[in-house]
Design a protein around this nucleic acid. Sequence first.
DNA 1: TTAATATGTCTATTGATATAGACAACTATA
DNA 2: TATAGTTGTCTATATCAATAGACATATTAA
Lengths: 245, 245
Amino acid sequence: MAGLNQVQRQTGVALWRQIADRIREAIGNGAYDETGMVPPETVLALQFGVNRHTVRSALAALAQEGIVRAVQGRGTLIERKERLNFPITRRTRFTAGIGDQARETRGLLLDEVTEEASAEVARWLRLKPGAKVIRLETLREADKRPVSKATSWFPAERFAGIGEAYRKHQSITKAFVELGLADYVRATTEVTAAHADTADLADLELTPGAILLVAKAMNTDLDGMPVQYSISRFAADRVQFTIEN
Amino acid sequence: MAGLNQVQRQTGVALWRQIADRIREAIGNGAYDETGMVPPETVLALQFGVNRHTVRSALAALAQEGIVRAVQGRGTLIERKERLNFPITRRTRFTAGIGDQARETRGLLLDEVTEEASAEVARWLRLKPGAKVIRLETLREADKRPVSKATSWFPAERFAGIGEAYRKHQSITKAFVELGLADYVRATTEVTAAHADTADLADLELTPGAILLVAKAMNTDLDGMPVQYSISRFAADRVQFTIEN
DNA sequence: TTAATATGTCTATTGATATAGACAACTATA
DNA sequence: TATAGTTGTCTATATCAATAGACATATTAA
């Protein structure tokens, strides 16, 4: 697994970025937990079959992200190692899902808009196309680090004021309670992966080429009526999903 | 949508590759279904804010992948549009999951090895570390296109000969039946995303920088005894997972 | 047939990427 | 206190990536 030669040339992806991605992933997988350090630059250069300067570019990028810190004479220390597990069940909730994996979770309301439902949103929420829906753009953090960004739609009539309620409680679950919905369940989740767009890169503090896990989810009330459709984007190197059957 | 479709400079990912990735994704999302063509090069150049030659590099890469075909004077035609839906349930099976989304599915056995279980494999299969396990490397295709690559481990004692059985039936389910296991269920699935390594890039016919959806799954027999642990890698732009609760 | 609209090809220039080698500066330890 | 092992800095060179402009060539529709 501590692999040889995992980079390719002339592909439009610079070698230093391929190497940075691999090292970030290896750190996340605990490959260097014994020493708490990345292997020496010369060793990495040999492993990847590139010049030492190329490895240095990769490590510089990781240092910029705050993942490693180079100390002259000693080596390159691992500063931060992040991978949260996020269970997807019938009772999926963001904050409860993180559980004791982080000390502090936070939900920021980035934007709130009332708009007409697109065909896709209308289908998921079982509304007529063009029906009024409230769209929330939210950013969720764990221990001050952004974990995911979500776009959520709610039927406007039933959940008027959900933006304000979310801002107050920083939680969809609590906002629902305030609006009279005591409980809800996850009906469907679709998972894909994609490259992040510029806005998501910035909000999630990622570097271009970074991968997102994308979860399209639909929640219903206990009568099976859709109450929320959301598209959540998670930084793939910070999160994994678990589906228990 | 058009103006927001931006690319970033000096990130180690060439502009032409970022653009190729975005266009491939847009095609997969059906963005150009009305015309069956990609917008003209000059329009794309304007949208992405780059030179026309840069767009041409991106389209050349997509043509190389067989996704588009440029016709002088007419435009750039979309040749292939691929996105399979793959449900993850208690009864998840690859071939049945694809269902009628493809006319023909195939399973290739790339490699078969008997080895000692690593700590991770032993934990999932509830074996002692070092116990004998059979590892299969398989490649699954739908309509002659590679869809996923999987590494699977089985308890060696119980499932001796599973490699041969898989080669014959091209299906894990049928191989299990031949070895006396009539039915099994999916116990756990963990989903992450990652960059493909060189071997997976080649087998899945992907270009570097491509994204994989990675599903780590454990199947048990009806008594709850683990029978298979597998790590499947799917080309992210060819599949999505659906989790029904 | 013509004009408008596409893609295809060529030259030229600039900045980013990658390699190569040499040596300085710092840390841990034998 | 040497010494081995590590990161930091510098110079130089070659190739890739991106821009720019001009014009050729093919298709479609007026």
